[in-house]
Amino acid sequence: MTKRRIVWVVWPVAAVAALAACSEKPQTMGGSNSKQDAAAFQGTGMPYVATGWKPGDKTSWEQQLKTRAQMGQNDYNKVP
Rank of each mutant, 00 (worst) to 15 (best):
Y76W: 10
K58N: 06
Y48I: 13
D75W: 10
Y48L: 14
M71C: 09
P80N: 09
K58H: 05
G31P: 00
G43I: 02
V49C: 10
T2E: 11
W8Q: 11
N77W: 15
W8A: 14
P26C: 01
G72V: 10
N74H: 08
S60A: 04
A38F: 07
V13T: 08
K25D: 10
Q73L: 14
A18Y: 04
C22P: 07
P80M: 06
C22I: 15
Q27K: 12
V9N: 02
T44H: 03
P80G: 11
A21Q: 08
Q73D: 09
K66E: 10
G31H: 00
F41N: 04
R5I: 09
Q70C: 05
P55A: 03
A40G: 02
L19K: 04
G52E: 04
R4Q: 11
A20K: 01
E24C: 12
K35Y: 08
K66A: 15
F41V: 00
A18C: 03
A39E: 09
Q36D: 13
C22R: 14
A14R: 06
D37Q: 11
D57I: 00
G72A: 15
Q42L: 13
A39R: 05
Q64W: 02
V13I: 15
V9I: 12
G52P: 02
E24R: 11
G31L: 02
A21N: 12
Q63G: 02
M71Q: 15
V10T: 09
K58T: 06
A20V: 10
K35F: 11
Q36T: 10
A14I: 12
K66C: 08
M29L: 15
W8H: 08
I6M: 14
T59I: 10
S34Q: 04
Y76S: 14
P47S: 09
Y48F: 13
Q27R: 10
P55R: 02
S60Q: 05
S32I: 07
A21L: 15
V13S: 07
D37C: 09
C22V: 12
P80T: 07
E62K: 06
Q63P: 00
K25H: 08
T51S: 14
P55M: 01
V7M: 09
A18D: 03
